[in-house]
């Protein structure tokens, strides 16, 4: 297991190195790096001073080395707009994004898995067809438009929920959270449901497909022959095995929720790092864009690493044959 973990860690580090190279290439090689990193409003003297300070007169490999050293020290430059370290800004907004993504993931699991089980168990019945139709609809709904419709219906027409923003937060264990208060939930509900819709469809399809596959297996036929109650068969034998592919994709799906939060946060004015990214792109605040990118890549690589480790723990076959997997 130690060797397996070590191999995975080395792989994750290799991916990080490659990604840092790509981000470096994207920011420093595409376009004029001075324009990217120096405030466009700066004077000519300031401009020349910054070119030297940034080491842009150095050969490319020296520049990359400096970039990596800065990266390892957590120094990605200051935001043009806010004047504070870019990385600090990202970390400030991160809890809001993780909160809405996590809430969406829980909602997707709580509704997608049971619906998928029913659809897989009774594929030909009206309810199975209805759930499948629902999942195709969910796949086709443009997320940002549904968000607008939510705002129109629940905030403007009915006036039940706020149209946007995060509302009051409570300081819990050093993090600002809104799930601890009712008012926080009122703000969180629409963005989280909006973000969850696509994943609900995905989980319905995934669960329904594996349920149908599992129902054909011998151990299910044996359980039926033994006279076990259908509820017990589905609740225990089917569910347990249907969860395997779900656990597999869970980590990546969480990562993709964090990414798609960019859209939902923009619609609902949710003050997370996704909205910060869009604002920074609009305002040409390049250091913040770079910081966001690196933080998200780090997040993805960590998630993958953890999922790989869990997989190795759960399934001995992966661990033993892991060398070439």
């Amino acid at each position: 297991m130690a060797w397996y973990a070590l191999a995975r860690l080395l792989q994750a580090l290799a991916v990080l190195a490659v990604m840092s190279l790509l981000v470096f290439a994207g920011v420093y090689a595409l376009g004029n790096p001075v324009d990217l990193l120096v405030d466009p409003n700066a004077g000519a003297a300031d401009y020349a001073r910054r070119v030297a300070a940034l080491g842009l007169d150095q050969p490319l490999w020296v520049q990359y080395a400096r970039f990596v050293v800065g990266l390892l020290h957590g120094d990605l430059g200051n935001s043009f707009v806010h004047g504070t370290p870019a990385l600090h800004l990202i970390f400030e907004r991160m809890p809001a994004t993780l909160e809405v993504s996590f809430a969406a993931l829980m909602m997707a699991l709580a509704s997608g898995v049971p619906l998928g089980l029913v659809a897989g168990f009774k594929p030909q019945s009206w309810i199975g067809r209805a759930i499948r139709a629902l999942s195709v609809l969910g796949f086709s709904l443009p997320t940002f438009w549904v968000g607008l419709m939510f705002i129109m219906l629940f905030a403007v027409e009915l006036g039940w929920l706020p149209a946007g923003g995060r509302g009051p937060t409570e300081h819990v264990l050093g993090i600002d959270l809104s799930i601890t208060t009712l008012e926080g939930w009122r703000h969180l509900l629409l963005p989280a449901v909006n973000l969850a819709l696509f994943k609900i469809s995905l989980l319905i399809r995934l669960t329904a497909a594996s349920t149908q596959e599992i129902l054909r297996q011998d151990y299910i036929r044996f359980a039926r022959a033994k006279g076990l109650h259908p509820v017990r068969i589905v609740g225990l034998h089917v569910l347990k095995n249907a969860l395997v592919p779900i656990v597999t994709v869970l980590g990546l799906e969480f990562g993709s929720l964090v990414a798609f939060a960019v859209v939902t946060e923009s619609v609902f004015a949710w003050p997370g790092m996704g909205k910060l990214l869009i604002d920074s792109i609009t305002l040409l605040d390049r250091p913040v864009v770079v910081a966001y990118l690196l933080v998200v890549v780090l997040l993805f690589v960590s998630i993958n690493f953890i999922v790989d480790l869990l997989y190795g723990l759960l399934d001995p076959r992966v661990r033993l044959g892991g060398a070439q997997a």
């Binding site: 990562g255 798609f260 998200v296 993805f300």
Partner: peptide, 18 residues
Amino acid sequence: DLQLAFPAILLALILLAA
């Protein structure tokens, strides 16, 4: 695989920003 692990929307967003 590396690219599929990274959401399409972020990749497209960053490319278009550049």
